[in-house]
Design a protein around this nucleic acid. Structure first.
Length: 354
DNA sequence: CGACGTGTAAC
DNA sequence: CCTTTTACACGTCG
């Protein structure tokens, strides 16, 4: 039987800024992604716990957060380079405690600690990790331990910040069943509304629901995946996975339908993306252009070509795709670029044999 | 089946 | 007033 740990750094960006600027410690700290179109346009990336107490949440417009904040609070621009560098150092420490390891995002990781033998031993490791991370990096984290990634993740979310929650196999149903459907990973507002209007309110309701009925509500695959989650079933291994797509998107200074304006920005994004592609030795077959209109609707156009890693191929494909958008009279608030159908650099492709 | 466009979700 | 990046599912078309 496996023992999996999920480690989640508490309000990570805000915690790093408080460490850098001790004078703001304890104040409501709001880390912002500024879009650059006006002084305050943008969204909240992370709010410290004292900022959350004021009702400030990730994803909220900065202007809305400022209204909630009132007086004594600190709004800072996100410094992603710094956060990524610090994250990398912490992840290196965590990896040392795991049989297998998977970084799930900049501030989350899964550790397979099965080889420690017992939940008691896993708890000791978790305490050691908290101590090491706190001493070396001055941040707290919340840790969940369970028999699967699914349960470990839900456990880490149970008590925050600085929490440690253990859910053993025998306690899984008791832990999951009372949860409102919205709390299950993969259930957002839309899905929750569908389920609730069908009288399905808790994880236990999902578990008790026939697969057929659930499929009518959500479709075949989502129904199966959600039922497994509600029942606490998850066999997915802790293992890194190759990326399947790489994208870059940016907000434009002003809404525009002009080819030249959008093309200039797409070219910059393509160059940025290409550095990452080079670094990873990746090739791709599909290039997409993403346009977000002033009413925030997303549109994409894509084109599949011969496997390539060249910047010129990204730029040329995106030029053609953007032409289509402009011809259709599309106006852009934001514009971006994506490569997918990734092929690892060494693979030459099956066409050699066909 | 592969390609394409959209929707949902999480961080 | 409304960021950024990634993943997955689903419908449609040829």
């Amino acid at each position: 039987m496996r023992i999996i740990m999920h480690v989640d750094f508490d309000s990570f960006y805000a915690s790093l800024e408080e460490r850098r600027k001790p004078e703001i410690k304890g104040m409501p700290v709001v880390i912002c992604m500024y879009s650059g179109r006006s002084a305050e346009s943008g969204a909240v990336a992370t709010a410290s716990y004292s900022a959350r107490a004021l009702g400030i949440r990730a994803g909220m417009p900065i202007a809305a957060a400022k209204i909630k904040a009132g007086g004594e609070s600190v709004f800072l621009p996100a410094d992603m380079e710094y956060y990524r560098a610090e994250s990398g150092k912490i992840m290196d420490i965590l990896e040392g405690y795991a049989g297998s390891f998977q970084q799930a995002s900049i501030d989350e990781a899964y550790l397979d600690v099965s080889s420690c033998g017992s939940y008691g031993a896993a708890e000791k490791i978790a305490e050691e990790i908290k101590k090491a991370v706190s001493e070396s990096f001055s941040i707290t984290c919340s840790i969940g331990i369970g028999p699967s990634r699914l349960v470990a993740k839900m456990a880490s979310g149970h008590k925050k910040p600085d929490g440690l929650t253990i859910v053993e196999e025998k306690g899984v149903k008791k832990f999951i069943f009372p949860l409102p459907v919205r709390k299950l990973h993969g259930v957002g507002g839309k899905t929750a509304a569908i389920l609730e209007s069908a009288g399905v309110k808790t994880a236990e309701d999902i578990a008790g629901c026939s697969l057929k009925k659930l499929e009518e509500l959500l479709g075949k695959n989502r129904a199966r995946l959600l039922k497994e989650k509600a029942e606490g079933v998850d066999d997915s291994p802790v293992a890194g996975q190759a990326a399947k797509q790489i994208s870059r998107i940016a907000t434009l200074k002003a809404d525009t339908g002009r080819f030249d304006d959008i093309y200039e920005r797409l070219s910059q994004l393509a160059a940025e993306m290409h550095r990452k592609i080079e670094k990873n030795g990746i090739k791709f077959r599909t290039v997409s252009v993403i346009i977000i209109s002033p009413d925030l609707e997303m549109r994409t156009r894509s084109r599949t070509i011969q496997a390539t890693g060249r910047l010129e191929d990204i730029v040329e494909s995106s030029r053609q795709l953007l032409k289509e958008f402009v011809r259709e009279g599309m106006v852009a608030r934001r514009a971006g670029i994506r490569v997918s159908n990734l092929v690892s650099g060494k693979e030459r492709g099956l066409h050699r044999f066909l």
